[in-house]
Amino acid sequence: MIRPSAVALAALLSSGAAAQTPTLTVYTYDSFVADWGPGPALETAFEETCGCDLVLVAAGDGAALLSRVRLEGARTRADVVVGLDTTLTAEAAATGLFAPHGLTPPPLDLPGAWDDPLFLPYDWGYFAFVHDTTRLAEAPDSFEALVAAPDDLRIVIQDPRSSTPGLGLLMWVKAAYGADAPRIWAGLAPKILTVTKGWSEAYGLFLDGEADMVLSYTTSPAYHLIAEDDATKSAAAFSEGHYMQIEVSGLIAGSEQAALGQSFLDFLLSDRAQAVLPTTNWMYPARTPEAGLPAGFETLITPERALLLPAETVPGLKAEALAEWRAALSQ
């Protein structure tokens, strides 16, 4: 824990001053607040010690979340935002709506260092193409192999304009192939069955047997294994490496509950909170809890190379990558 006494004291003082239970409003994405998501357990745990009322507000997915905060601007009711990712943090920082978190994070179990003054990671994962081993025994082991795969292999991906995994794939191809990205997209185009609005539709199509592979996460098979006792789902390891999604939280500038918000960010990296995330959010915790990862996670593939473009270069690359994507897929 970072500065527990100071943080607790600040929280205590602010609650005493208000002479009533303070409310901490957290904006996050839909699947976070669901009954089966991490929200309920984290809320119970945090409220045990904070002397506050934690209110989780769902606002669509990650991209929709940022739009919502921008739409509300300085008048936003949010004190904390949980669920942006590294393809969005530079844009989020540019809005000026976020305040430095002011915390010195404990050592994180992330591939690579973390030194963002505004945002703190709470979990992360690798994007990957997931397939059903009973339907597709030999999965392609690279983008090149996917391009060269038999004609009838079909993948389903998400629209980068409306979904964070979709945008992640754009960055993945860009990070792996750079100026050569248009060639990969042109090769992928005939393999793409359809492009869906969000992750849910794409994954639904995959589970229904419409597509052979779906863009998701290396951790997706863990859900099927742990929650459904189904070991048939697998993520294909790509030799180019896998692009990372690091999910972060941040404080809203000018929040009246700044100290409380800070203690929530701190709490998210606590052992108790981190232990909740793997089997509710189905991602890797930013700090491996003392008890280790849940049984089943050891079966997941570990990419040899972790790809991640520096967050500040993403906004510049996004327009270019989107234009390339659109041109290749409009043929």
Binding site: G60, S162, I192, E201, W325, S330
Partner: peptide, 22 residues
Amino acid sequence: LTLGGGPSATTIELAIYEALRF
């Protein structure tokens, strides 16, 4: 968006969504 198959099947409504959210 689900059945369109790709960006060539973009409607005005989708462009609006893109402008608002993206």
